[in-house]
Simulated assay, not measured.
Amino acid sequence: MKQEFWNTRYIENASVYGQEPNHYFKQYIDKHKPGSILLPAEGEGRNAIYAASKGWLVDAFDFSEVAREKALLQATAKNVTINYWVQEIETYKAEKKYDAVALIYVHLPQALRSLFHEQIFKSLNSGGYLILEAFAKEQVEFDSGGPKDKQMLYDAPSICSDFPFLHLLSCGQKEIELNEGKFHKGKAAVLQLVGQKL
């Protein structure tokens, strides 16, 4: 979707996906020693702020300047520091390495997704972790959020194809009850993954 669409959505809603961190992401953060982490397409900063509050060194970006402004205001209010910039996913290059990268509901056209995931893999330190939660292809049957184009939804084979050298520690599809603001609410089909770069 266009930048203008997302800027408008972020302006018109006090909180698009809620202020609490994504549950799957929170589980990872709570169980791992803090390090450096990258959060692409981070929106209003709920996950970045939570990670920073737990001692992580956080880099984040989004193509919406409105989302960035809201995230930085929230970070200041909660007395944490995040490094957040405006950037298109199309232009992202792996110029820095991280102990973890989290892709939380980052849905892209297939060709762009494969190129972006290649850069994400390059962004991981040896031993670094990828954390991913996204809507599965079966999400088209639900009205709890996400794209309606199946090509932009996930399945395990496509993820394994995108990250052939990632050691999968857990990877599974499940139905969950989403409660992340009014745009992620209700029963949903999701793919959840944690993998390690060896």
Results as ranks from 00 to 15, higher is better:
64 S>Q: 07
67 A>V: 12
59 D>C: 12
47 N>R: 07
92 Y>M: 14
61 F>L: 03
76 T>H: 05
84 Y>M: 02
75 A>F: 06
83 N>C: 09
46 R>L: 00
94 A>Q: 02
41 A>R: 07
91 T>W: 11
75 A>S: 14
57 L>H: 03
90 E>V: 13
87 Q>R: 13
93 K>C: 12
54 K>G: 05
68 R>K: 15
69 E>W: 04
80 V>P: 02
58 V>Q: 02
96 K>W: 10
96 K>E: 14
51 A>I: 03
79 N>M: 08
43 G>W: 05
75 A>V: 12
36 S>Y: 05
90 E>D: 15
47 N>M: 09
45 G>F: 00
82 I>C: 04
67 A>N: 09
82 I>Q: 01
63 F>P: 02
85 W>H: 12
83 N>R: 10
38 L>G: 02
58 V>C: 04
52 A>M: 03
47 N>F: 05
39 L>I: 10
51 A>P: 05
78 K>V: 02
42 E>I: 07
61 F>G: 00
58 V>R: 00
46 R>Q: 00
76 T>A: 11
68 R>F: 03
36 S>L: 10
76 T>D: 09
59 D>T: 14
89 I>D: 03
36 S>G: 13
88 E>T: 15
66 V>H: 08
89 I>Y: 05
74 Q>H: 11
46 R>K: 10
40 P>L: 07
90 E>W: 10
97 K>A: 11
39 L>A: 05
54 K>Q: 14
49 I>N: 01
83 N>F: 07
64 S>C: 09
64 S>W: 06
70 K>Q: 14
47 N>A: 08
38 L>E: 01
39 L>G: 01
67 A>E: 07
43 G>D: 06
